[in-house]
């Protein structure tokens, strides 16, 4: 398991929020932890994959999309808090995210 610090968590949070704000053309201040990325922001799965690719590049992660897909079967991404929690876990556990 890779250790995640508060600084990394904040960095990931900023990256994710900035990404959704830009892609969905909304102000950052409109995105809260309760925001539903799909229903409230109109994001789609292709945006989500792009965000995963960006994160993997930034943190040099070797992550298979299927691992994330299986994780999402157990834990739907209903809110921004769910999305961030998943990205923290991807950073920590990589492909083992599915078992978290």
């Amino acid at each position: 398991m890779r250790e995640i610090t508060d600084a990394i968590k904040n960095e990931i949070k900023d990256m994710v929020i900035d990404y959704y704000a830009e892609e969905c053309e909304v102000d950052k201040s409109e995105i809260t932890m309760d925001t539903n990325p799909t229903e409230d922001l109109g994001s789609d799965s292709l945006m989500f994959v792009e965000l995963i690719e960006m994160t993997a590049d930034k943190y040099d992660l070797d992550i298979k999309l299927q691992s994330i897909g299986k994780y999402m079967l157990k834990t739907p991404m209903d809110t921004m808090a769910d999305v961030l929690d998943m990205f923290y876990k991807i950073y920590q556990y990589g492909n083992d995210v599915v078992n978290q």
């Binding site: 799965s45 989500f48 999309l65 299927q66 691992s67 897909g69 299986k70 999402m72 079967l73 599915v98």
Partner: peptide
Amino acid sequence: CISEGAIK
């Protein structure tokens, strides 16, 4: 595909 981990 969904059961095998498709994102969508």
